[in-house]
Amino acid sequence: MEATFKVGDKVEHRSWGAGEIAFGPYLRDGSTDNYLMKTESGDHYLTGAEAMTMTAKFKVGDTANGALTGRSLKILAGPFTGRMGVAWYAVEYPEGHAGKENERNLLAPEPVPFSDAGPVKVGDVIRILKDGAFHADVKRGDLFEVKSLVSYLDRVRVDAAPGARMSQWNFRPEDYVKVPADEAAVHDGVVYDLTAKYRDKDRDVWTLARFDDVVRGGLGHIPTSRYSGDSLEFIVNEYGPLTRVDS
């Protein structure tokens, strides 16, 4: 018979309140479903499984990730008790339809990377944090302009790279970090990394910099003001396309 709880499970005891399983299950008085529970205050008690309930892993409105698919799901209701005492939740899938998922198939989202740049909005630029993030054909460090927000799933949507199977990609908070405005620029749908250098069609290398709402480029030098060098628009039109220099 499968044990009701395992070490580390968060539980609520009918007499001692919230805590977690510190040891068990073990045999006691003919029953094999007994445990040592540690309360939040640090006290330990011997107890049977019937006196405890599992603390809910998620609450209604939470976002969870599929353990196998990695997809972001919204918790609609639950937890409910299923077969063998395993909890399940009603969820909403990215396509918009509802279903049910075993608690063991749901993972809490990874912590969102800290950024001093603030919350993301449409028009901002994000930097991808890992290769293949959320099943997209992307590399760590790739930049994208945010085209729309899927707020109830806590995701952003960007235009996919040319030739991709899909026209757009979605990313979860753990897949990206917002890029400060002085580190990126968008011109004619193309995102430029202002911390990198770019080679033009003549193989000359440009360094870019932002000055308020203006991005300037210098050939062989770093622009020092909004009046030095050439505008990004001029450089792209006269010498483009520009290719990022990765080394």
Rank of each mutant, 00 (worst) to 15 (best):
R155H: 04
T47D: 03
L36S: 11
V245Q: 05
F144G: 05
L143N: 01
E12F: 15
S15W: 15
I75Q: 09
N102Y: 05
H97K: 12
Y93Q: 14
T32E: 13
V191H: 04
M54P: 00
L107I: 03
I21T: 02
T4A: 06
D159R: 07
P241S: 01
F171Q: 04
K178Q: 05
R28C: 01
L129A: 03
V146C: 08
V214F: 05
D230N: 14
G48P: 07
G217S: 08
F80A: 09
G229Y: 10
P94C: 10
R226E: 15
V86P: 03
D212F: 09
H97E: 10
S148R: 15
G229K: 06
F144E: 07
L149C: 02
T63G: 02
E2R: 12
T81C: 03
A18T: 08
D159P: 02
A49E: 06
G118C: 08
A209H: 10
V177P: 00
K197R: 14
D116F: 07
A133W: 09
K121E: 07
L208S: 02
L153S: 04
G189Q: 11
A160P: 08
G42P: 05
P25V: 04
V190D: 12
G85F: 11
G78V: 04
E233W: 00
P25D: 01
G70V: 02
A67E: 07
Y176G: 00
P173H: 13
V186G: 07
Y89G: 10
M37D: 06
L36V: 11
F5W: 11
